[in-house]
Design a protein around this nucleic acid. Structure first.
Length: 516
RNA sequence: CGGGGUGUGGCGCAGUUGGCUAGCGCGCUUGCUUCGGGAGCAAGAGGUCCCGGGUUCAAGUCCCGGCACCCCGACCA
């Protein structure tokens, strides 16, 4: 797959030292980092071309690649390892909030899809259809699920009979397919992996509570595990899910100032329950229509991690989900291979005993600088360097990916230092991302300023909105900025607020941004 | 689905007005010397020049048709 030509850029910035404090001393500070500037396989800088930077990060880190299948990617082991870690962290939370996993059919009969009018209208254009079974044309074609409300709704109608069956709290981890016109690795591919929760409730209030509860699960998960400070809020009618009463979102801000919808939670009202006949006999012996919700996040989150934290040297993965948290790189020396390998294995074992995910890099056909660079591209949070001098001194060099700082520590302090660094790096990534988001959240005072800011400063625009789809559309047409959400925090109108575009009295404050 | 661009070893590219055995860099293999921030030398392997027609003594190169992918717009986790 040709990726546009990349002009090699020399890396800038000096490596600094950090203080490993307490019982370890700094033996030596490594203060410079001189990389070969003309290597052809460097990644472009973010400033130069954010889009190329993003794709090259993924490819150089060996996370994913395009395939012969249009719009579909292969997620390679390193990318899948990240997915597994974040999936497990989220799965734990989904179960802790009382949900169970199940699996529903991939194929959705067309007649089912049509049972909710808005829903089919929203998804029909991006459905892939199965029309044949073997050589025979089917009487009714099947959609490959673009989402599972329809198939699950039809099944739930069988399951729900009594108020005693409620709430029904189920989640599915699955692949879905949407025939996309334009694809980008992880952010938008025709097939992607996700989880979709589908719940049924007795009352409107309970469904609403569930919707907001899961949004909060997402928000906390993004913050704690991925170090992504996403803004929770409500979608406008124009942006909400096809067939939902209300859609809520967690909106993240990428380093290029574009927003990324990181997860959504929908209160489906009774639309789907009516469409799919999900009814129950209530305590008062009357038949009632149920209330449903759905909520999901996808492999898109991996794109979010990359664009939130990465730098011009490649990925920076949050330690809590990084497939490799600590890499031990040996610096080869003829005759010492055995001793280096032995030490490296001993350190790895000690770290694993503490639950740290460790990889050893004992390749002796590569120069150390090459190996360092490669693990930096892959975003490994902590790198331990073990060389001939360290064997003499009883030390290793230990470097953190987030700041580039490097110091020497004694062997006895390796495990403690690494564990502490992993915690610090996780916190530092979140802090940096949060500061970025705050710095990039602007409050233009008038329409001219809005237009200027969206072009020159980018980021979130927090502005008054009159609540109409007309002004929302007008803003989108004029600036390509869409209404990302009415944030829970800061979305309330203040006295005197007016719509940034129409000048009419505002009913909300809303976040606008250009979005992925 | 509209506008633009590109298809040549794994990757990035060159290939002149059609002309000789299709090149270069990186990567890969083998060997030796190296090794604390992308090593050096030597010897090798690797090609349906996107596909199908056509023009020509001769096509990677020109013509026609197709396909794929990438970028930019309208729609989307």
């Amino acid at each position: 797959m040709p990726i546009s030509g990349v002009s090699p850029l020399a890396r800038t910035g000096l490596r600094q030292r950090f203080n490993p404090h307490l019982n370890s001393r700094i033996f030596k500070a490594v203060t410079k980092q001189q990389a070969a500037p003309n290597k052809p396989d460097r990644i472009p800088s973010r400033a130069e071309n954010f889009s190329d930077w993003y794709i090259e990060c993924i490819r150089k880190a060996d996370m994913a690649d395009y395939t012969v299948v249009k719009g579909c990617m292969v997620i390679k082991p390193y990318g899948y390892g990240l997915w597994e870690n974040l999936r497990d962290a989220l799965d734990r939370r989904i179960k802790e909030t009382g949900h169970e996993n199940a699996y529903f059919p991939l194929l959705v009969p067309e007649s089912l899809l049509k049972k909710e009018a808005e829903h089919v209208e929203g998804f029909a254009p991006e459905c892939a259809w199965v029309t044949h079974g073997g050589n025979d044309e089917l009487e009714e074609r099947y959609a490959i699920r673009p989402t599972s409300e329809a198939i699950i709704g039809s099944i739930y109608s069988q399951w729900v009979k009594s108020y005693r069956d409620l709430p029904l709290l189920i989640n599915q981890w699955a692949n879905v397919m949407r025939w996309e016109k334009r694809t980008r690795l992880f952010l938008r591919t025709s097939e992607f992996l996700w989880q979709e929760g589908h719940t049924v409730h007795r009352t409107e209030e309970e469904a609403q509570e569930e919707t907001l509860k899961m949004l909060e699960v997402y928000r906390e998960f993004l913050e704690t595990e991925l170090a992504i400070p996403a803004v929770p809020g409500q979608k406008s009618d124009a942006e909400k899910f096809a067939g939902a009463s209300k859609t809520y979102t967690v909106e993240a801000l990428m380093q290029d100032g574009w927003a990324l919808q990181a997860g959504t939670s929908h209160n489906l009202g009774q639309h789907f329950a009516k469409g799919f006949d999900i009814k129950f006999l209530d305590e008062d012996n009357t038949m009632k229509v149920a209330w449903t919700t759905s909520w999901g996040v996808s492999t898109r989150l991996i794109g979010g991690v990359i664009m939130t934290h990465g730098d011009d040297n490649g990925l920076k993965l949050p330690p809590r989900v990084a497939p490799v948290q600590v890499v031990i790189v040996t610096i080869p020396k003829s005759g010492l291979e055995g001793a280096l390998k032995e030490k490296s294995a001993a350190f790895a074992k000690a770290l694993r005993a503490k639950g740290v995910r460790v990889r050893e890099d004992n390749r002796d056909n590569l120069r150390p600088g090459f190996k360092f660079t490669e693990w930096e591209l892959k975003g490994v949070p902590v790198r331990i360097e073990l060389g001939p001098k360290d064997l003499e001194n009883g030390t290793v060099a230990i470097a953190r990916r987030d700041t580039g700082e490097k110091a020497f520590v004694k062997w006895d302090d390796i495990v403690g230092t690494a564990e502490r660094l992993l915690v610090e790096i996780q916190a530092n990534l979140l802090k940096t991302a949060r500061e970025f988001r705050e710095r990039m959240t602007h409050q233009p005072r008038n329409w001219e300023e809005f237009q200027d800011f969206i072009e020159t400063r980018k980021g979130f625009m927090l502005v008054g909105w009159d609540g109409t789809g007309e002004t929302e559309a007008a803003i989108k047409n004029a600036t390509k900025a869409t209404l990302r959400c009415i944030p829970f925090d800061g979305g309330k109108v203040q006295p005197g607020d007016v719509d940034i575009f129409s000048g009419k009295p505002a009913v909300h404050r809303a976040l606008f941004a250009r979005a992925y």
